[in-house]
Amino acid sequence: MLGFSFYLTDPLDDKAENYFMNMSENGFKLVFTSAHIPEENHSQTSSKILQLYELTQKYNLQLMIDTDRDSMKYLPKNIFPGSGLRLDDGFSPIDISELSQNIPLALNASTLNKQLYNELVKQNFNQANVQAWHNYYPRPETGLDAAWLKQKNEWLHSIGFKTQAFIPGDMNLRGPLHDGLPTLESQRHQNLLASYIELKKLATDTVVIGDPALSTDMQSALHDYVQRKMIKLHLESFSDESVKSVICNSIMENRPDVARDVIRVNGSRQIIKDSVIDTTPISSKIRSPGSVTVDNSDYGRYEGELQIVKTELPEDPKVNVIAQVVQSDLCLLNSIGSSGLFYFSDQEEKD
């Protein structure tokens, strides 16, 4: 599942509603907010949460409200259908059990241990209503270790909990530090699609955008991967405009027999043959990682084969370099496996 964050200090205006609508259309199912961020003014918390709840209902989104025991007094008296609480400090096993009978809950995954779990079982908590959520970490160098997260998630799965973690946004990073809100430190400045893929491999069920904004480009990239396991790659340095018009925005497939050094586009020789791309040999160059290449007429029956280079390869006069995957997307190449789907997008359109 995919989720995103909205913070109570931000206005619930037409811009916010448009963002909620776009996120819902791109497959996001959950909205996270917090009622106990120290720097926030709590005088309007209850009314703001009511407004936020109405907006999430309009776009069929689940609302999860982060709260500690002291901040519960700022919440509306009734927790509405379709919403739940992410519990932080101050809740006893008895409190958790009572709340779990009626509403969805999320417990702090980092502090949920065997002792607490056994106490919850003794209190007959409704585990079907309870998940385990990791924190985000605004201060650089304090995010979690990936190996530790995987180990923790696997243990949580073994006792029946679904898990969650955060990745940063790519616009309007939240203050006061403005350095991203990831769960994993290694993902603070990493490609967000790569971060999502990594968290899924680390046994994470739900991924939430921690920062308050996500670009439309990344919305579509995450949507395409979640729906079809299709990876979006941005290109630059086209050899000419004909290349851009032929290879961008068309769904491509890696061959089922995965090559070590390159991604080989299935059926590309016929695609290039039927296109306006020139396969006359041009000046050869070193093929750096992310180089998009086409075999030229000197390669005989391989003429027209389209490839993406995964590791640095030497110059080859039989191979034309026609474009380049942008640096930030290179980490996605190894995620394109057997018969893996992907498509190219012009970097200028993203900018």
Rank of each mutant, 00 (worst) to 15 (best):
K318C: 13
I231D: 07
D179H: 15
N135I: 14
S92N: 10
L75M: 00
N249V: 00
P212K: 14
F6G: 11
Y74G: 02
I272R: 01
L313C: 06
C248F: 00
H189Y: 14
S237C: 06
Q131D: 15
K162N: 11
I159T: 04
S71H: 07
Q187A: 14
L52Y: 11
F342K: 02
V226S: 09
S24K: 10
M252E: 00
A165T: 11
V265S: 12
L12M: 14
Q51G: 15
E236G: 05
E154G: 03
L116H: 08
L105V: 01
V207S: 11
H42Y: 15
L235T: 03
V326F: 02
S284T: 13
L85P: 03
N102F: 12
H234P: 12
S46L: 04
P140Q: 03
S46T: 03
T45F: 10
G84Y: 00
H223G: 07
A16E: 14
D240E: 05
K232F: 08
R69W: 08
G210F: 05
K318E: 12
K152T: 08
N249P: 00
T183Q: 12
L193M: 09
L63N: 01
H223P: 04
H178I: 09
I322M: 03
F20V: 04
T206E: 15
V292P: 03
L55S: 12
K162V: 08
K122V: 14
M218W: 13
G304W: 05
Y196N: 07
Q62P: 04
L63P: 06
T111N: 13
F28K: 07
I231K: 01
P182M: 02
D351K: 13
Y225S: 10
G337F: 05
S215W: 00
R269Q: 14
E98W: 15
E303T: 07
L214W: 13
I277F: 00
F28D: 01
E315Y: 09
S283V: 13
I197V: 07
V226F: 07
I336A: 01
E198A: 12
Y302F: 10
